[in-house]
Write a protein that binds this DNA or RNA. Structure first.
Lengths: 226, 226
DNA sequence: GTCTATAGTGCGATAGAC
DNA sequence: GTCTATCGCACTATAGAC
């Protein structure tokens, strides 16, 4: 699989997440027409993620958000009840969505080696398609209130667990011989995260997401056997 | 080398950084007595880093900082001229200091293999001793104004360059056989950063900084030969 | 469903007493 | 060198017109 095969799905994904958000928060969202609401939510979330990635969520004012979305203060407050609410909503639905997509692709292949490769690729491709979402999860999670932070931590561990499962399967099938599966999985995550956290570096060096994926896969595979 | 050998130096380092800051910013710092100024700067920077790591720099108000330091608004403004100024000062001096320490330890050993091991250890040990500084550099750099951001980027690349140099030396001496030195060094950085960015995970799993260092060293060494 | 206008709060920054 | 008091401004949030 190459990135170009994956790329077409971008707008679909974001609309899906917003539709989930609309359904999950129908009591706090005052707008009742689904079509209109989802359209505006896509607008609001894209703008929020853009502004947050530029200056951070807490430095983003709701007036910034008005300017970016073209909506008024009053209109914005029909879609969430406080600014903090806006942060929590984005965080929760997005994280679930990403884990879902990854599992879907991993389950579609059979061999352990292919599962590992596809897990790495899909994580990178997703973060290439919607970098603002990934950056938002990473950067804002540490500032959230305890209850919300727990959900973010659970989500980090859930993606890690996906890798742990694959590596253990490989050990059992004697394809890999990994001494410390948890630590190995644990080291893979930051390598994947570097792709969106230091995007400027790879852009500057003209390294594409496929280049990065190819390198990471062969780099990690070197460590899986004695 | 183990972490316990390194640990004793903590307060010295922070005071050294603050003394550098005092000397480099003598025009904007209104206090003239070095002893007093350095003492208050240590207080102010520790408080800033603590509050920033809890809620982010932009969400930290100067009133929060008054409470945390025990100083008044007026007193704070004798040590910096604007809030943004405070951010820039911490960023610049701290980064330089860290690169200096790393080079000092690397130059003290001879073999390439030892240089690589010591570079990994010192980076981890420094971030163990002053995690708030590292977290601050990482988290706040992306929100700084262009000029300051350039300095932060230069600093990220400078630490990366330290690793590139070691790896290239290893290739030349036929000790390593690395195809893509830049990419390899580039992958090492996020692994080192994970130690302070996801400290909660390693604390929870009772993994010490020495455990982490040992694992990372043998993990990376597996990838350096064909 | 979206707008404008505004209430009420807390911010960064400064002036002047001690 | 540090404090208290206060200014002006920008913020989140809401009420009521359309």
């Amino acid at each position: 699989m190459k990135f170009s095969d994956f790329q077409k799905l971008q707008s679909v994904y974001i609309e899906d997440i917003c539709r989930n958000i609309f359904k999950a928060n129908s009591q706090s969202i005052k707008i009742k027409k689904e079509g209109l609401a989802v359209k505006n939510l896509v607008n609001i979330y894209n703008a929020t993620l853009k502004l947050s990635s530029e200056k951070g969520f807490s430095a983003m004012s709701l007036r910034d958000l008005c300017r970016e979305t073209g909506l008024s203060m009053g209109a914005l407050y029909s879609y969430f009840s406080t600014k903090e609410d806006l942060l929590n909503i984005i965080q929760e639905q997005g994280q679930q969505f990403i884990a879902g997509i990854m599992n879907q692709y991993i389950n579609a292949v059979d061999s352990v080696e292919e599962k590992l490769r596809i897990a790495i690729r899909i994580h990178l491709y997703l973060s290439e398609i919607m970098p603002q979402w990934f950056i938002f999860f990473f950067m804002e999670a540490r500032y959230m209130v305890k209850a919300e932070q727990k959900k973010a931590i659970a989500s980090e561990l859930a993606t890690e667990q996906i890798f742990i499962n694959i590596l253990e399967m490989g050990n059992q099938q004697k394809i890999f011989s990994i001494d410390d599966v948890t630590m190995t999985a644990s080291v893979m995550k930051p390598i994947l995260q570097d792709w969106y956290l230091k995007r400027w570096k790879y852009t500057r060096r003209k390294i594409s997401v496929d280049d990065y994926a190819d390198f990471i896969i062969q780099f990690i595979e070197k460590t899986l056997r004695r």
